[in-house]
Design a protein around this nucleic acid. Structure first.
Lengths: 234, 234
DNA sequence: ACCTGAACACCGTTCAAGT
DNA sequence: ACCTGAACACCGTTCAAGT
């Protein structure tokens, strides 16, 4: 595509091969993920990218999950937290602004499909995740949600967003997606009113709504639950 | 352990090697999972168990995810739906009974760790899943939750339960678990009141409660959200 | 201390060839 | 139509040996 690149003198073509350090490994992992997806971020592939053997990486990371978690922490930096401060006025009440933050988070995970699965398991504790938690707590505080409920609610909110992203990520393969959706619709529509009266009665409602509508309702619903559900006395 | 088993005459030791059919494959998959965990239910291992090569299985199943989904459908049969009918009186109001069903579902997935991940992606549509959905809808109906909200709420309830199981499953490895929990506690406690005032203010609440207390609160909270959150006009 | 080659013990999936 | 051997293209992780 750019044929006038001069032929390299030595065989070190890469621009200053990244040093074999934890930071260098993570940096390469992020680049690799952006270029080819998380499924390619394997110890062997990573080692290849760093011009070494897989065994060398084990001096810096304990296992494959570690670079994956580091990538996740990195990406959490691109979540849009601006609705927290109520910038650009007219952004709606605290509920709507919290929903905006959660939808931004969901989108970040959705774009990097396989990452959502890591997020569900990894419990990121990096600084970007801390900032996200702080933002959610701030908005719940603005909404006068009692502290103890807010503290447990933030977990549910993030879990819901993460699970939604994880659910959709693997479903994103066009054909399979259609098949699976049809299987669900068929199962629901085929439910006999005799054995499954409630499913039969609500068949339309069960499969209605656009993904956006459902996601917005889900977040509002979980926010309301957090607001109205008292914690048991300790 | 039972040393008086007579030596087999032929080398066919297995009791009537299961026929190579879809049902036979699923049956073997379930047995293998119960004996060695889902991570051992691979095409190669399954083929070995059926005295054949992996290629042969592709006549009956499209990929590895298919037997996994079949196992999941099977296990959903052991979820305790009895609280739905209000049997054994004194089981509490509809909210408590719904929580009991959801906790039973969570436990089934928790016992079979890796399965929760499949559940998040597979959208099971087998008959046991249909019965579970019907049970949840019945309890929501008893609680006079408006149909359209119940229809969307059942998804959130199951997703929450599934995600909780998925989260805990991989965290069940004792040492890693302690490390990760400490990392979280350290991150929360170390949050400076200057940059993260809400986290600092709620540090204790963020990490308080037993898993059982938290899970019960989560279900009550999501149930309340479903009850009180109207769906947008279509 | 850091790095490596080589090995161990696996994967999913495809395909040409056989019965 | 069904089944198979063999291959292709990979995995994570460990460890003895080198520098």
């Amino acid at each position: 595509m750019t044929p006038r690149t001069p032929a390299p003198r030595s065989r070190r073509e890469r621009p200053a091969k990244p040093a074999l350090t934890y930071e260098g490994i993570v940096e390469t992992a992020v680049r690799l993920m952006e270029a080819e997806g998380l499924q390619r971020v394997t110890m062997r592939r990573l080692a290849q990218e760093l011009d070494t053997g897989p065994a060398s990486l084990y001096v810096y990371v304990a296992n494959t999950a570690e670079p994956h978690a580091a990538i996740l922490d990195e990406l959490l930096g691109s979540v849009d937290l601006s609705p927290t401060a109520g910038e650009g006025d007219g952004d709606g009440d605290w509920r709507d602004r919290l929903t905006q933050v959660l939808i931004s988070y969901t989108r970040v995970l959705l774009e990097n499909s396989a990452l959502a699965h890591s997020a569900l398991v990894a419990r990121p504790s990096g600084s970007n995740n801390l900032a996200l938690v702080e933002a959610i707590l701030t908005l719940l505080h603005e909404g006068r949600v009692p502290g103890p409920q807010a503290a447990w609610g933030v977990d549910v909110l993030l879990q819901t967003a993460t699970a939604t992203a994880a659910e959709h990520s693997t479903r994103a393969h066009a054909v399979d997606s259609a098949d699976e959706h049809n299987a669900l619709v068929t199962a629901v529509r085929g439910a006999s009113p005799g054995t499954h009266p409630r499913i039969a009665a609500l068949a339309d409602d069960l499969v209605s709504g656009t993904p956006e509508q459902r996601l917005t309702w889900i977040f509002h619903s979980v926010i309301n639950g957090t607001l109205t559900t008292e914690r048991p006395a300790p």
